[in-house]
Write a protein that binds this DNA or RNA. Structure first.
Length: 833
DNA sequence: CAGTCGGACATTTTT
DNA sequence: TGTCCGACTG
């Protein structure tokens, strides 16, 4: 990666001509260590070109993969199913382009979505061509490449090249200020929500002038457009960009300056895009601009992706981009990779059958040759509630760990629990803590999002960029210096009135008596500090300076004096922050990286079960995968259904597909009959996705658990007799099928017990209009009626047993259960005894 | 300015 | 039911 923005050679960075004939051709994919004699990629490329037989790196590829690697000219779409060797193709393709001398490393534009993906690609290319990946300056995320371009041409969009990159937190604070400045009620119109709207517009590539009228009116009494424009103005004054701008500014710049764009056209001979199904409209426009070629010149664009794994529609990704590829790039070739090297036949069969229920797809069917009669089918388990679910999963994990089932001891590292929503994790964590089972949660709060890290960063930012008002406001009174709201407001007003940065305003104002003496002294000190630090910036090594800043500002002392439990951890994080600066040359270079790239690394040494969301599991694989929570309302998530309709459902289904295809050997799916959501117990129906799994590859687990009074007589009978739980709520093919089969296949397939669960513990009194999950529904439909219970009634609850009603609020009952203690439940779930 | 109370909210997340 | 954030109070 680059170490700053001012040291990137631009159009003169081509590799020198080969110095001497290569001793060794670019050898196979095996780890080959550093390049012998530091030979450049180009040199090896030349060597490889002279070879008569096919180079080694092609030998391990299957015909489709090889085709995808060797089809270098003209547009190419590689539809790479899960586990079909996508990354291998991508990296080998790059190696091939280099090895055949078609382009220099600096002439390849390779874009990924995440830094992780970029890092992995670099590593693997390094292994293929032998080190020297520094020679690929244009391999990176959309955003990091966007920054690189923007730094070069910042002035063309009205920025200076040392502009700051704001993260979400900064953006929200800034917008909040704007909303307040407009005199709009910031409670009614939350800044966070508006930030998301702006983000959405930017994902679509829309300027303030281009946003739909309806959108503009939808916020702040119709001031949406003005606010967006004001926000952009403010960014300009701050010399700052948000993440969206990193793409939009280059797009604007290219459109307004065709000559500049042309330079890039000449530069990038080959363009590669990873995870194309995740691109949003702005990224698409960006790509189109860069891929333009005069008539007759081939567009060497290669996009790799899998429409079945598109799970980011909700944040602006357009599956349509991948579905439309052939139209967008005339003459495009499409190669499907369907041979799977990861999973068993059963897992592929289950996943394939499920995903076939989606309509808008290009259509692929994964297959494998490696069929083994011992392969386990996908197992569906039923549990009574989420607690039992966690217990049972824990037991299964321990069983695998001990090697009970197949005599092999399985490492925890090879197992993962993939949940739909993060609140599900908790139950597993609790359980694993009591079991003493190691686990690791992937995808929690990021390192650079921590309070203390952001504070420290604000100090560094302000030193590098005295105009960074957001940073100024963040730390001017952190640690406490007696600079309260009044002082800040005065500074703010003065700064805005004169259009100067707040730090400068402070310098002015301490000369006057507009500020109280005490605050004046404090401000004076702050200004002095920053003056000195700014001077040291050029002379002092950045690590030393950073430490000095945190010391002298009193920031570290603040945490040292803090008696709270998290203070030591925060100090540790600050140390870690300083430590991580070692990899960079300057404070500026470091800041750039943190805002775009930095993420905390997990300690991989420990053997532990991974717990994460399905979203963060994309791209990973595990021997054994547990998929809990397959219930209507949770998965597919009710909100996805409500807000996304049919396409929302299809995205949920793709998520399920992603989940199953993470498994190499074993996949265990769970659903529960009762889940506590927002504190209230709710009955749940098994996910419709379960009905969409093929019987041949799936088995239903025998009851290894106790089900209490599951389905016992008496309870709920009357309610479910009347309301058909399958009443016209859904219309997908899979659902219809399930409906048609419910009397036989469903019940046989899932066993009597769960068959009961489906039918008896269902939508309760929900009518045909039922759209919300049953708990809410019951809540709504029953509040109007007077409760049929009275305080003191003796009642029976299917989970908690017998108890007495302590109080009643609408349809919510507080009950003292004999065994379970006091609980609040909906009245629909208890019966008088 | 720190600590406490009460109301709103409760999918998914990168850059 | 639990958490977070903002307002209020001492």
């Amino acid at each position: 990666m680059s170490n700053g923005f001012d040291d990137i050679p631009f159009f003169d960075e081509e590799e020198p001509a080969p110095r001497k004939p290569a001793q060794a051709p670019a050898t196979s994919t095996a780890a080959s260590g550093p390049a012998p004699g530091g030979l450049g990629i180009a040199a090896r490329a030349m060597a490889a070109r002279d070879q008569t037989r096919a180079p080694d790196y092609l030998s391990g590829l299957n015909p489709e993969q090889r085709d995808a690697v060797e089809t270098v000219d003209g547009p190419l779409l590689v539809l790479a199913g899960a586990g079909t060797g996508k990354t291998r193709v991508l990296t080998t393709r790059i190696a091939h382009i280099l090895a055949t001398g078609r382009a220099f490393p600096s002439q390849l534009l390779a874009v990924t979505f995440t830094n992780k993906a970029a890092r992995e690609m670099k590593e693997r290319i390094g292994l293929l061509v032998g080190g020297a990946v520094e020679g690929m300056p244009w391999l990176g995320t959309f955003h990091s490449i966007g920054v690189k371009i923007l730094r070069r041409h910042a002035e063309l969009v009205g920025l200076r090249s040392d502009f700051t990159i704001l993260d979400t937190d900064d953006v929200v604070r800034l917008i909040k200020q704007l909303i307040q400045a407009e005199g709009i009620d910031d409670k009614r119109w939350p800044a966070k929500q508006f930030a998301q709207m702006i983000d959405g517009w930017k994902n679509k590539g829309l300027d303030p002038s281009q946003i739909p009228e309806g959108d503009a009116r939808a916020f702040a009494n119709g001031k949406g457009r003005e606010l967006y424009a004001a926000y952009q103005n403010r960014l300009k004054t701050l010399n700052a960009c948000d993440f969206g701008d990193l793409l939009l500014h280059p797009i604007r710049m290219f459109r307004a300056n065709p000559d500049v764009l042309k330079e890039y056209h000449q530069k990038f001979k080959y363009i590669l895009v990873d995870e194309y199904q995740d691109t949003n409209t702005a990224q698409y426009m960006w790509l189109r601009l860069l891929a333009q070629r005069p008539p007759g010149v081939p567009q060497n664009v290669c996009c790799v992706g899998d429409d079945d794994q598109s799970i980011y529609g909700w944040r602006g990704a357009e599956v349509d981009n991948i579905l439309r590829f052939e139209k967008d790039f005339p003459g495009a070739k499409v190669i499907k990779l369907e041979r799977n090297y990861r999973s068993t036949e059963h897992i592929l069969g289950a996943a394939g059958h499920l995903i076939a229920h989606n309509e808008g797809r290009l259509g692929k069917t994964l297959f494998t040759d490696r069929v083994n009669p011992d392969d386990e089918k996908v197992v569906v388990h039923a549990a009574w509630d989420s607690e039992e679910e966690a217990r049972a999963v824990g037991e299964e994990i321990e069983r695998l760990q001990r090697g009970d089932s197949d005599g092999k001891k399985h490492a925890l590292n090879d197992m993962a629990i993939l949940v739909r929503a993060s609140f599900q994790m908790r139950e597993f964590e609790d359980r694993f803590v009591t079991l003493g089972l190691n686990y690791r949660v992937i995808g929690g709060p990021r390192f650079y999002e921590r309070l203390e890290v952001r504070d420290a960063m604000a100090y560094f930012r302000l030193v590098c960029q005295p105009a960074d008002d957001l940073a100024f406001e963040r730390i001017v009174n952190t640690p406490k210096r007696g600079l309260g709201d009044t002082t800040i407001r005065t500074l703010h007003d003065y700064a805005r009135a004169r259009d100067v940065p707040m730090l400068a305003a402070a310098a002015d104002l301490i000369e006057t008596d507009e500020i109280k003496p005490k605050a004046r002294k404090a401000l004076f000190d702050v200004i002095q500090h920053f003056r000195r630090w700014s001077e040291l910036l050029e002379t002092t090594p950045h690590i030393e300076l950073a430490e000095q800043i945190l010391e002298e500002s009193g920031y570290t002392d603040m945490w040292k004096n803090d008696k709270s439990a998290e203070a030591p951890g925060r100090l540790e994080n600050l140390k870690e922050l300083i430590r991580s600066m070692e990899a960079f040359e300057s404070l500026r270079g470091f800041l750039e990286h943190v805002s775009l790239v930095m993420d905390a690394e997990q300690n991989a040494d420990m053997d532990a079960v991974s717990i994460m969301t399905l979203h963060s599991a994309k791209g990973l694989e595990f021997d054994t995968v547990f998929l809990p929570g397959w219930e209507e309302g949770l998965f597919p998530h009710q909100r996805a259904l409500d807000e996304g309709g049919r396409s929302g459902l299809e995205e949920e289904r793709r998520l399920a597909y992603v989940g199953i295809t993470r498994a190499k050997r074993r996949c265990h799916i769970w659903f529960v009959s009762n889940r506590r959501i927002h504190g209230l117990w709710q009955s749940t129906m098994p996910s419709r996705f379960l009905d969409e799994l093929p019987v041949t590859h799936v088995e239903v687990a025998e009851s290894e658990q106790s089900y209490g009074g599951y389905g016992r007589g008496g309870y709920g009978q009357s309610r479910f007799d009347k309301a058909d739980p399958f009443a016209n709520n859904y219309s997908t093919p899979g659902w219809k099928r399930a409906q048609a089969n419910k009397s036989d296949a469903t019940r046989d397939n899932w066993g009597t017990r769960s068959g009961h669960a489906v039918e008896r513990i269902g939508y309760g009194e929900s009518g045909p209009k039922a759209k919300t999950i049953d708990g809410e529904l019951v809540a709504k439909s029953t509040t109007s009626e007077p409760s049929k219970f009275t305080v003191g009634d003796r009642v029976f609850h299917i989970k908690f047993g017998n108890g007495n009603i302590a109080s009643i609020e609408g349809n919510k009952l507080t009950i003292n259960f004999d065994r379970a203690g006091e609980k609040r439940v909906l009245d629909g779930f208890v019966e008088r005894v």
